[in-house]
Simulated scan of single mutants.
Amino acid sequence: MQLEIFQVDAFSTEPFGGNPAAVVPLQSWLPDAVLQRIAEENNLSETAYFVPNGQSYDLRWFTPAVEVDLCGHATLASAYVLFEQLGEQAQVLRFNTRSGELRVSRGADGLLAMDFPAKQPQALDAPAGLLQALGLSQAAAVYRSDDYVVVVDDAALLDPLKPDFAALSAFDVRGIAVTAAGRGFDFVTRWFGPRVGVNEDPVTGSAHTSLAPLWAERLGKTALTCEQGGARKGQLHCEVPGNGRVIISGRAALYLRGSIFI
């Protein structure tokens, strides 16, 4: 069997930036075990698969270890492949996913805008051992949604972080985001997900369904500029219109187009 594969750097204007994702278009679903093995072989934080379904597409995402409920950067990468590589003419793509229908539209300026459900993180006391595992002595606040969200007062604390990934994997959440205001953006973030097989994700679009509402409330803004990453970074624009949705926008760049032989 021969399958087409694309590797796209999402949330970047050029290759080697943002967050790489593999995208594999399918005409019908392969067995789940095969989808997981391909994702493991790709060894990227996410491999996305889509299958045409009428006027929409069914979309699924796999890390090297598990299938996940929502992935922003691989959704952006999938939309980029459809719009820019496969000749999709629609202005708005509709994806059927585990997280409901997701829509991605393309603007005249080249931005791809993803319409995702918003999540409001809930404040809580820092779980025992969390800050130590991150290498932090203190935090301004800690919240929980799909992830633990750790807010720190100084953006300069983010780049030097060297978490204990084995310790972080013991926490029963998808991942851990460490975030702060500043550094030329409304907020900046690093995201760690050893529990789902991704020690660090350069840009996690889905995490911004929680981060954007949190920072919109903290900063009193509905439109936010954002950057995520450690050594490798990407940029996003988020809008929180107050209707239970978050609009997450970014650009993408093609790195690779080839074939899988299985």
Rank of each mutant, 00 (worst) to 15 (best):
A177K: 04
S12P: 13
C226V: 13
V81L: 02
P194A: 02
G197F: 04
A108P: 09
N243M: 07
G87R: 09
R251F: 05
R245V: 06
L111R: 14
G129L: 05
A252E: 10
S169F: 05
T209I: 08
L236T: 08
D186K: 13
G182E: 12
F6R: 04
Q122R: 15
V198W: 02
V246G: 01
A126I: 00
D201W: 08
Y57S: 07
R218E: 06
D9H: 11
A207K: 06
S78H: 06
G175P: 11
F192T: 10
A65S: 14
P194Q: 03
A252H: 05
I248A: 03
Y148C: 06
T13S: 14
Q27C: 04
L256M: 14
Q89D: 08
G230M: 02
V173A: 13
C71D: 08
N96T: 12
L86P: 06
S169K: 15
A128V: 12
N42Q: 14
G229W: 08
G54P: 14
E88G: 10
C238N: 13
S12M: 03
A180L: 02
E200M: 07
G100I: 04
Q36N: 11
A48Y: 05
V151C: 12
E84I: 00
V51S: 08
L59H: 13
P213Y: 10
E217G: 12
N19Y: 01
V66G: 07
R103F: 07
Q85L: 12
D201E: 15
G230N: 15
V68E: 09
L3K: 10
I248S: 03
L224N: 09
F171M: 06
L157A: 13
E4F: 00
V188L: 05
D32V: 07
F95E: 14
G54Q: 12
V246Q: 00
G230P: 08
R218T: 07
G18E: 11
K233D: 00
N96Q: 13
F16D: 11
G107Y: 00
D186G: 11
M1K: 12
Q85A: 07
E217K: 15
V152N: 08
G242C: 04
D9F: 01
D125W: 01
A65Q: 13
L70D: 08
A79E: 06
R60Y: 08
P25K: 10
E88D: 15
L59S: 06
G87W: 08
G110V: 09
M114H: 13
T225W: 02
V81M: 04
V246L: 06
G242F: 03
R60C: 06
A133V: 05
T209F: 01
V178R: 02
A22M: 08
R94V: 06
R174S: 06
D147F: 01
N43S: 14
